[in-house]
Design a protein around this nucleic acid. Structure first.
Lengths: 168, 168
DNA sequence: ATATATTTTCAATAAGTTTTGAAAATTCAA
DNA sequence: TTGAATTTTCAAAACTTATTGAAAATATAT
């Protein structure tokens, strides 16, 4: 397979993959393109390579910057802005985990602890099932939260190394 | 807070939460409703409680069954079919992980190993960055794959117990 | 200051996804 | 069988989300 084809396939698959993970197709495609670009590239490069409009590139690069996955780079002597992506996949993964935890898991856990404080007779079948379900999810979520925190703070070699040794 | 309000809020939030995780809103809402229902319920119950059409319930319960999260239950003497959800959150989580691994991670890893076999001069900057990126993702994905496999096979108390002790 | 290059915004539109509802298919009892 | 109850299907409609493109804003060089 030639580089050009391989690139196209990677970008397309990474885009499809992203949609399963709460990231939109184009945003994931731009991220893919930046991941395989050795040097920073411009809005126009992205527009051209992915055949998308300027506005689209602008909005999605901004989101990627918000996720902490992409940086704006100023190149001396160049008028245009350049973009570059973090290439270390461990850092990419921990960054995504950190953001999603903040945006999704933490608010959900907060809500669950409120819902557990329901009034009503614990002997009632419906009340009991509700409280038990909420408590179960909250307990599980709380534990996941702790593990993810360790992971976010950890260094890749330490984390995966220990984990794999542990599970062998 | 009253049970009725708490239920409504849980269903609505679980639905919104689901959309971030590749599961559609209604499917997640039906799942939430089943999680807090102590006994199996019918299509009509779901239609009524969530104010959605019969076709919608039918399609989404089918999907939930496909994910292994919901079962059809036959109640002797009843003509209608009943539905019930797995209540143990650890089992729910491992089942989701198992399915998503099969549907998303495994195909992605397969593709990546193909893309690594690219023709071209390794000294070329573009080729090098491409190969390095793919290799990095593949390595990371492969390790995640192993950890998830252990998790899927493990028992909750063993898994989380060990993990938390380990990370303390 | 002015002209030019570049980026940002956002209303309109396009594309994609979910939902409905009624017709077709299936199941089951008599 | 027949017919009533129930489930399934799927084209059309409703809704949601993503994309465009041109105008406005901003930045930079002369």
């Amino acid at each position: 397979m030639k580089l050009t084809d391989a690139k196209a396939q990677f970008i397309s698959s990474w885009g499809a993959f992203g949609t399963h993970w709460g990231i939109n197709r184009t945003m994931a495609q731009i991220h893919a393109l930046l991941l395989i670009s050795p040097d920073p590239i411009t809005q126009d490069d992205i527009m051209e390579q992915l055949s998308i409009s300027r506005g689209n590139v602008n909005m999605n690069t901004r989101d990627l910057i918000g996720w902490g996955l992409v940086d704006r780079v100023l190149i001396p002597g160049e008028r245009k802005e350049f973009f570059t992506a973090e290439k270390d996949i461990w850092k990419v993964a921990t960054q995504i985990i950190k953001e999603r935890k903040k945006r999704e898991l933490d608010p959900m856990l907060k809500l669950l602890s409120q819902l557990e404080q329901i009034e009503g007779d614990k002997k009632d079948k419906d009340v009991k099932q509700f409280v038990d379900t909420i408590a179960g999810i909250r307990k599980f979520g709380g534990q996941a939260d702790k593990v993810l925190d360790v992971m976010i703070k950890a260094d890749e070699s330490w984390f995966l190394g220990s984990l794999l040794k542990f599970f062998k």
